[in-house]
Amino acid sequence: MRARETNRGGETGVISAILFDLDGTLLETEELKALSYARAAVELRPDAVKESEVLEAFRDLVGLSRGEVAESLMQSFGLEDAARERAEEVESSEEEPWEAYVRLRLRVYEELLEDPELLLEQRYQHNIDLLRGLRRKGYPVCLATMSHRYQVERVLEVLGLDGELDYVATVDDVSKGKPDPEIDLMVSREMGVPPEEFLVVEDSVAGVQAALAAGMAVVAVPTSLTGPKFRQTQVLENRWIAYEPGAVREVVSRRIEAADERALQTQQEEKEGI
């Protein structure tokens, strides 16, 4: 998606653009994805795999690319032989076992995405309100997601956000998934805004790692799926993690203020030759 012409910067300070994740941040699609992987796994090995066990295993994989998720789940639940058989069912196909597994899970996921009421039930209204509030303050707002563009367009339409983003980057635009910073750096490049002037709002550890690797400021908004891993990994200072929906606006405001203060301090040190 081409970057829209926009005034750079909202309130004066070093943070001049905002980058949101989609899955798990604006909409709890991670739960829908987890369910699709689980149901596809059960379809492959109905006598050996329990849906609840796959859902639990998915918690540690949130934010990774679909290939990484599929490979990990296949290994954990012994799905490779069954997935290989499914791949061989497709005539003239060179499909790898993990790709066959992903194909099955996408069929389930597409069915879930066709239900607008289900999508609206899964939205995180507090983060959507935050996005709109930041836009009203003048910040360009972008999206970087590991979902496919056609899926993103469907979700944004249902949420009423299809006209409110200055740039949208999807998994179709990059070769590496989060925690690699490729997609965040792409947004920075396309928007013409240096990475250090972005504030990223992310729900997953992999997403936070990508933003930090890109040199961006981050606020984490964990979900029930991703919260435990944040407490285990300590990938981000607790003061920049909003575990409760009611704390999101305050944490974001403090993060922007802290970035501004740091920029002023650096400028002062440069003037004084420190």
Rank of each mutant, 00 (worst) to 15 (best):
M1I: 06
N7P: 11
G9F: 02
G10N: 07
G13V: 04
V14K: 13
I15D: 02
S16L: 09
A17S: 05
A17W: 00
A17F: 00
A17R: 04
I18Y: 06
I18K: 10
F20I: 02
F20H: 00
D21N: 08
T25M: 08
E28T: 10
E28D: 15
T29M: 03
T29D: 01
L32D: 03
K33L: 13
S36H: 01
S36F: 01
L44G: 08
L44E: 06
P46G: 02
A48V: 01
A48E: 02
A48R: 03
E53H: 10
E53W: 05
E53N: 08
V54A: 04
A57G: 08
A57C: 08
A57T: 06
D60L: 14
D60H: 11
D60M: 11
L61Q: 13
S65V: 10
S65G: 12
V69E: 05
V69Q: 07
M74Q: 00
Q75S: 15
F77D: 04
F77W: 00
L79S: 01
E80F: 14
D81I: 07
A83D: 01
A83F: 07
R86T: 12
A87V: 05
E89Q: 08
V90C: 00
S92P: 11
S93L: 10
S93T: 10
W98Y: 11
Y101C: 04
L112Y: 14
L112F: 14
E114H: 14
L119N: 03
E121W: 13
R123N: 12
R123S: 15
Y124I: 15
H126F: 11
H126D: 09
I128W: 02
D129L: 06
L130T: 09
L131W: 12
G133I: 07
V141W: 13
C142Q: 06
L143T: 05
A144T: 09
S147A: 12
S147H: 07
H148K: 06
R149Y: 14
R149H: 12
R149C: 09
Y150E: 15
Q151Y: 13
V158Q: 03
G160N: 06
L161R: 03
D162T: 07
D162G: 11
L165I: 06
Y167L: 15
Y167Q: 15
V168H: 03
T170V: 06
T170M: 09
T170E: 07
D172K: 04
D173K: 00
D173H: 03
S175I: 10
S175M: 10
S175K: 14
K178V: 06
D180N: 15
I183K: 01
I183T: 02
I183L: 04
M191S: 04
G192N: 05
P195S: 06
E196S: 14
E196F: 14
L199H: 08
V200F: 02
S204H: 03
G207Q: 00
V208I: 10
Q209S: 12
A210I: 02
A214E: 04
M216I: 00
V218E: 10
V221Y: 10
S224D: 15
S224V: 15
L225S: 02
P228K: 14
Q232R: 15
Q234P: 01
V235M: 09
W240G: 14
A242M: 07
Y243M: 11
A247G: 09
E250G: 06
S253Q: 11
S253Y: 09
R255H: 02
I256N: 07
E257C: 12
A258N: 08
A258Q: 12
E261H: 02
Q265T: 12
Q265W: 13
Q267P: 05
E270C: 11
E270I: 13
K271T: 09
G273D: 04
